[in-house]
């Protein structure tokens, strides 16, 4: 579940596309089965949420690939910028002590 949202282009507000040429864009997330998180699978165009869900079912779950679907207007997704990836994720880089492998444990200690 590390994929970025698909849509890179500036996107007009979804949901009120009446004066737009096409239908607004929605991102689709599918839970493959109980116990798993929803995963991004792609996008689609639909005039409203109900049809977005129905289209998502027809496009992305023709072979029972899911037990639950989320659709989200693409314009509602806020994403970190790949350009600032170093500075943005910097704080995590120098904190090796957050990982269990950082610690020296005497030989023979179990269940730790």
């Amino acid at each position: 579940m590390t994929q970025t949202p698909q849509n890179p282009a500036p996107n007009p507000a979804a949901g009120n596309g009446s004066d737009r040429r096409g239908w607004p864009l929605w991102e689709v997330f599918v839970r493959a089965r109980r116990g798993l998180a929803h995963q991004h699978v792609g996008s689609l165009h639909a005039p409203d949420a109900a049809l977005a869900l129905q289209n998502a079912r027809d496009i992305y779950t023709r072979r029972s690939e899911g037990v639950s679907i989320w659709v989200v207007p693409s314009s509602a997704i806020v994403a970190s910028s790949p350009q600032e990836k170093d500075s943005f994720f910097d704080p995590a880089l120098d904190k090796a002590y957050r990982h269990p492998t950082f610690y020296d444990i005497p030989e023979g200690v179990e269940h730790l």
Partner: peptide
Amino acid sequence: GLYLYSACETLGVDRE
């Protein structure tokens, strides 16, 4: 076709 149009739109083109 729809998967691919969706992928193509991520490159900044409009489906229409």
